[in-house]
């Protein structure tokens, strides 16, 4: 269980509180207006943003002293998910051993992960030679290899077209099912939330509200969401 215990985030007049928890293996959409703090919330969970007060706990363990790389978390950022000077296979290998001294067995795992996300034959390419969708697939393949119990996605597919984005989210769902990971997805688009997540968190007016079932949430939107969705 991921627990946000009276978490308070603040920076230059911005303030966000969160006090709730999500069970392992859940899929959560995080929705809300721009600048409300969706990305900041994810940064705090991943360990890039220090909270003013409160705790982030995973299975009862406080993560405050745990560095980002050692947390039980894989992150997909908005961009810069791959090192452009390393090959696709090397970028994936970093998920298994950050110093890239892979055993033969680990090299085989990398190959299998590439096949799994539909990138077989692309191992030696550089990220610059891939399309946007392929870059997303490579980043997901690395998350598959790292097999961490939490997967945080900060709008990594925002630049893709609707069809491609739906395809990528389906792949995220498959990866999450295989690894049993808890997924938190930041999105602007109610369709993403409804298609992907069983639970939804609304971030608005300084509060990240406790997750509620997605279908019920959109069937009867709270006032803050209605303002965001428009008439």
């Amino acid at each position: 269980m991921l627990q946000l215990d009276r978490l308070v985030l603040a920076q230059d007049g911005f303030r966000l509180t969160a006090d709730w928890s999500v069970p392992c293996g859940e899929r959560v959409a995080i929705i809300g207006p721009s600048g409300a703090g969706k990305s900041t919330l994810l940064s705090a969970i991943a360990g890039f943003f220090e909270p003013v007060s409160g705790r982030v706990l995973w299975k009862g363990q406080d993560l405050a002293k745990v560095s980002p790389g050692a947390r039980p978390i894989s992150s997909l950022f908005q961009d810069q998910n791959l090192f452009p000077h390393l090959s696709v296979a090397q970028n994936l290998g970093l998920g298994l051993r950050p110093d890239l001294r892979l055993s033969r067995d680990q090299a085989r795992q990398v190959e299998q992960a590439l096949v799994r996300v539909g990138l077989s034959g692309m191992a030696e390419r550089r990220p610059g030679q891939l399309s946007g969708g392929q870059i997303g697939r490579a980043a997901l393949a690395r998350a598959l290899l790292r097999a961490r119990p939490i997967l945080l996605l900060d709008e990594p597919f925002a630049a893709l077209g609707p069809a491609l984005k739906a395809e990528m989210l389906a792949l995220v769902a498959e990866v999450a099912d295989e690894t049993g990971a808890l997924v938190m997805l930041v999105t602007h688009d109610p369709k993403d939330a409804m298609g992907f997540a069983r639970q939804t968190v609304l971030v608005a007016e300084g509060v990240a509200q406790a997750p509620v079932p997605t279908a019920a949430f959109f069937a009867n939107p709270p006032p803050a969401l209605r303002a965001y969705l428009g008439p």
């Binding site: 991943a46 980002p68 790389g69 978390i73 992150s75 810069q80 998910n81 090192f83 998920g95 950050p98």
Partner: peptide
Amino acid sequence: YGRLSDSLGL
């Protein structure tokens, strides 16, 4: 690449 490196424990 600071965040990416940190998140991978690199």
